[in-house]
Design a binder for these strands. Sequence first.
DNA 1: AGTACTATCGAGAATGATTCTCGATAGGTG
DNA 2: CACCTATCGAGAATCATTCTCGATAGTACT
Lengths: 143, 143
Amino acid sequence: MNHRPAEEASWSRRFAGTGHRLTAQRRVIMRHLAGIRRYLTARELHARLARSHPRMGLATVYRTLEMLRELDLVASTPRGAGEAAYLYCAGDHHHHAVCTRCGRVDDVPCRSLPGFERMLSSSYQFRLTEHQLEFYGVCARCS
Amino acid sequence: MNHRPAEEASWSRRFAGTGHRLTAQRRVIMRHLAGIRRYLTARELHARLARSHPRMGLATVYRTLEMLRELDLVASTPRGAGEAAYLYCAGDHHHHAVCTRCGRVDDVPCRSLPGFERMLSSSYQFRLTEHQLEFYGVCARCS
DNA sequence: AGTACTATCGAGAATGATTCTCGATAGGTG
DNA sequence: CACCTATCGAGAATCATTCTCGATAGTACT
Ligand SMILES: [Zn+2]
Ligand SMILES: [Zn+2]
Ligand SMILES: [Zn+2]
Ligand SMILES: [Zn+2]
């Protein structure tokens, strides 16, 4: 669980601006997420924190994850049968390459989208505002 | 609800091959989906069919949508707070441009992905097997 | 068409994830 | 330290989805 102070300064500053309190629970959750490169469900995260923080409530984990998602500090994706998984995802716009064997996630810069954008604009008169892209495959370590 | 016989022949043939029975309920569900260019949740679909088929059970809608997803006849996407929405999506690999105003969905051919593929392969040693891409914006009619 | 064999259906119960409620707790400010 | 409230924890409530089971209806074969 590598804890990088510089990284932490970045997202902790984010809280100050929003008026939300940076409580002990929220700091613990953010640190754990920021230190792991994989999607975690609320339950998984709660279980991982159970040892070090036995009094952490599951509702708090849900509330915090939802808040972090609104602040664009984490991304969420549906996993299997209707369970959402969350990933620390701050910084500039980018996408994710998810290893289907080990679950590791690599950040991938967003390229080659202008081609789509032109096509959507010219062929469909579609004014693009957002896009969601995720890759699945096998990472270097699992090959 | 434009009903195209040629289109219907395509997916009805799909059932025969799988050993699944093409029942009245499944035909009604497929026809409705194939005739509408927007994502529908199981509940929405069930409500739309309530008038013409009052005895259609919600569980049947869920079961059928799940089956159609496995047969790659529909695509699903999570909508809002953990509710899945389904879209008729047969034919070759492509993506969707969803209008955030009216909900209309346009099919978009998959281009420009080779750039990502090369980058993933060379920079990350990531062996790409799948990808999920969806566009959001405003369609021609809504502009 | 009639019969047998099952897959499928409908209705409601059960499950599981997420959200809500509310009294207790603890940031933050002065 | 005292006050004000946002937040917390625990459990109830909600909501989507799946499961159970007796009834129904495709399908194959007379
Ligand atoms: Zn891997
Ligand atoms: Zn992008
Ligand atoms: Zn539109
Ligand atoms: Zn594609």
